[in-house]
Design a protein around this nucleic acid. Structure first.
Lengths: 158, 158
DNA sequence: TATTGTTATACTCTATAACTATA
DNA sequence: TATAGTTATAGAGTATAACAATA
């Protein structure tokens, strides 16, 4: 039971430390850590629909929409009609958005260096792998308690 | 550079997955994941000052105060005068708070099991250790950029 | 029918700064 | 002088539900 409670708290503490250090670094660019994640997600895969963007962040579509409104107002992202699906809109970085992202990437470098500096290279790889395993396991099953959804599905707990 | 950007995102994804699964589990008790952390911190070390509670969570004193006001209103925590320092107030769980915490602990069990189920026992230990290393490294130095504070201090970046 | 996105709404967490009272 | 806590204030992110338009 020692590890059982330690692991979630350690995960939380590490993430919050990362988040706060990032916030502090990005503050002078008037961008939050979460906005950085959005910009970084767009930088890697431009012209996503809002839903796809939300899925990758990961976040809620209506949350992402609220963030996009803020960023669009500042000219960092733009939304255009989707070429084939006229319900959808594609989101991309503007030129200013790409510039901002490059600045932020540089500004965040010390934080990434500080994380990696605490680890052996092999440990960093391992840590990333273990975190991914944990995230996958937690996301694998979002069945609301009490509704058993059929035979196949990683049963974890009622 | 692959790992350099992967690690922060993996950390974020794992934490958010944990946070959301926890929120879903705790929702029927009308307690948020962060409130659970506060209650758990009190359950482990009762009669803390607000500052000490904030330090352990970790969170900001004024954030903790806002949370305490909510929880106090619902009778889950109480604040009393500090025995020796009359500026300070001690925070503790009420009987109802302790009961609630036990319920929450049980409600969260499947989530913890799901995390640990994705890992070998030795991996779980290792993961907790690596996360602690990372958190310590990130917290070690919060020197505002541009102010070099003397000779000794883990220099990381200007 | 299901899906994309919008709108309205509400609440928690977050944090800074100015303040009081005490150490 | 420094510390514990309060207050005022502001904003971000979060998410649900009802809705329109389209697939």
């Amino acid at each position: 039971m020692a590890t059982e409670s330690k692991l979630p708290m350690a995960l939380r503490a590490a993430y919050l430390a990362l988040h706060r250090r990032s916030e502090a670094r990005f503050a002078r660019y008037d961008v939050t850590a979460d906005q950085f994640v959005l910009l970084a997600t767009l930088a890697r895969g431009d012209a996503l629909t809002q839903r796809e963007l939300a899925r990758r962040m990961p976040s809620d579509p209506s949350t992402v929409r609220a963030m996009l409104v803020l960023l669009e107002r500042r000219g960092l992202v733009q939304r255009d009609a989707h070429p084939t699906d006229s319900r959808a809109r594609t989101v991309s970085l503007t030129a200013a958005g790409r510039r901002k992202f490059r600045q932020l990437w540089t500004a965040g470098e010390p934080v990434r260096a500080q994380m990696l500096g605490a680890l052996e290279p092999s440990e960093a790889e391992l840590l990333a792998r273990l975190l991914t395993q944990v995230a996958d396991a937690l996301n694998a099953q979002s069945v609301p308690a009490g509704r058993s959804n059929s035979h196949h599905s990683q049963k974890v707990e009622p």
